[in-house]
């Protein structure tokens, strides 16, 4: 975990209520996909946790002298849905403004278990962490398939970004206005895969859990206090005892999940 200030490079609308926030700052603490950052906003007591969508480590990583010693000016992309007062306030921030972030939070995805043909499933606001995961899985030589689930065509984002990584991409919309009609589980039919990685609303996670025959890792969301394991606000029960979504999660192994 690290606390640092990040400069906003851009903060733009992707769809109706989904924003893409690009930040410049010290990303050295962000180690694996599926981790999150916790953002302090003026006028709000608690920080806002947002999952890491993409992260580029800075060229200065490892610099041992000069102004950049110990710093890594990297780029960080976060995607968030405007759902409450906090995210509404975040959407008002402009390029050039600074944000106070805690980075390197949470236990992310382990790509070593993926097998050759992993299946990545993101639903709505659960799509963003799949991006860095997909990038890393491709870099590791696997052939991922990505299923992106949305309610309708108007909500679809990042389809082309995933395609440009070189992944096979299937979009499912609940109302059938784009891609496969139905839920992400409808799009899972006829696909062969070695492992599943999922992030999305809990009913989606559970449906994927029940449909997938193989092992997998599932990322959960919970209302957090601190975001780094101190307050026990986001504890959940697993087969291996209680775990904190913010510190021991948000990614849990399929075999430990209790619904």
């Amino acid at each position: 975990m690290k606390q640092d200030f990040f400069e906003i490079v851009s903060n733009e609308r992707l769809t109706g209520n989904v924003m893409e926030l690009v930040l410049r700052g010290d990303t050295s603490e962000i180690a694996v996909p599926g981790q999150f950052v916790n953002i302090k906003l003026d006028g709000f007591f608690l920080r806002r946790p947002l999952s890491v969508c993409n992260c580029e480590q800075g060229a200065n990583a490892g610099a041992s002298c000069g102004a950049m010693a110990g710093k890594s000016e990297g780029m960080l992309t976060l995607i968030y849905k405007i759902v409450g007062e906090g995210t509404r306030a975040l959407a008002e921030y402009k390029a050039g403004e600074m944000l106070d972030l805690l980075t390197g939070l949470g236990n992310g995805y382990d790509i070593s278990k993926s097998g050759d043909e992993p299946l990545l499933i993101g639903g709505g606001a659960g799509v963003p962490p799949m991006f860095l995961l997909c990038r890393n899985l491709i870099a590791a030589g696997t052939k991922p398939t990505v299923i992106l689930g949305f309610n309708s065509k108007a909500e679809v984002f990042y389809e082309n970004e995933f395609k440009s990584l070189g992944a096979r991409v299937i979009v499912a919309t609940a109302d059938g206005s784009y891609g496969v009609r139905g839920f992400v589980t409808d799009a899972m039919k006829d696909i062969l895969y070695s492992y599943t990685y999922a992030c999305g609303p809990e009913p989606m996670l559970r449906a994927v859990y029940e449909k997938a025959a193989c092992g997998g890792q599932y990322s959960f969301e919970e209302r957090m206090g601190c975001g780094f394991g101190a307050c026990m606000g986001c504890s959940c029960k697993t087969k291996y005892g209680s775990k904190r979504i913010c510190k021991d999660g948000p990614v849990l192994e399929k075999e430990e999940i209790i619904w």
Partner: peptide, 9 residues
């Protein structure tokens, strides 16, 4: 859960 609710200050 939920066990946390944000308030003013």
């Amino acid at each position: 859960l939920p066990r946390i609710a944000e308030c003013t200050a």
